[in-house]
Computed example of a mutant assay.
Amino acid sequence: MKLLLVLLSAFFTDAIVMDGKVKEGFVQDKTSVTCSYDPYYKDYPKYWCKGYYRNHCSVIASTPNSTNRVSLNDTGMQLIITLTCLTKEDTGWYWCGIQRDYASDFMDYTELIVFNSEKEAADLQRRQNRTCKNSGVAHGENHSRCVKS
């Protein structure tokens, strides 16, 4: 019975959880992401991959190895990923995963947005806070600016 409960909890709980769905950083800076996971999986291989779809992401690094710009630190309860020397090309969707041989991998995602400068980040924040509905403004076709309706 105890084994059944352990197995059921593995299927109905989040085995791995990213610390945020959106991460932001600046060019030439660094950022970190933490993926917390059930300690049951401490000895399973973990990985970090890039791509919008979980089944088609490209693995960048996996435990116990790191690359020159991606560092993986597996504590036994968390996978801490540190990306250094950020570039605009690093912007995109990323997944942390627990590799399982006979079942689908456990995965969670985040979106990384890399800005050129603090001014670019502040401009984006202002655009996101703008309420076009109340100001009589509608989004144009290119969605990058608002135009009068």
Rank of each mutant, 00 (worst) to 15 (best):
H143P: 00
N116Y: 03
K42G: 07
I81A: 09
V147T: 13
L124M: 07
A103D: 13
N73E: 15
V147A: 06
L83E: 12
C57M: 01
N68R: 11
S149E: 07
C146T: 04
N73H: 07
R145W: 10
C132M: 06
V22F: 05
T131L: 03
V22C: 12
N73F: 06
G51W: 00
V59D: 15
G76C: 02
K21Q: 12
G97L: 07
K42C: 08
K23H: 13
K50H: 03
P39F: 12
Q125F: 05
T31G: 01
I113H: 05
R54M: 12
S117Q: 04
T84L: 08
S149L: 03
S62K: 06
R69I: 08
V6I: 10
V6N: 11
M77P: 02
F12S: 03
I81V: 10
Y102H: 13
Y44Q: 10
M107H: 06
K2A: 14
W93L: 08
K119R: 14
S36V: 02
H56Y: 03
G136T: 07
S9T: 07
Q78E: 09
S135Y: 10
E141M: 11
G136R: 04
S149T: 13
D123Y: 09
W95A: 01
V27G: 01
S71G: 14
C96G: 11
V114Y: 05
Y52M: 06
A61Y: 03
D74R: 02
V147P: 05
R145L: 14
A15E: 10
N65E: 15
E111P: 03
R100L: 07
P45T: 04
H56F: 02
G20N: 09
A121C: 07
L8G: 05
M18I: 09
L112T: 02
G92R: 00
K30V: 11
A61P: 02
H56I: 05
V137W: 14
T63A: 03
L83Q: 13
F12V: 12
F115V: 00
K50F: 07
N55G: 15
M107Y: 10
Y53K: 04
T131M: 14
L4G: 04
I113C: 00
T82Y: 00
C96L: 04
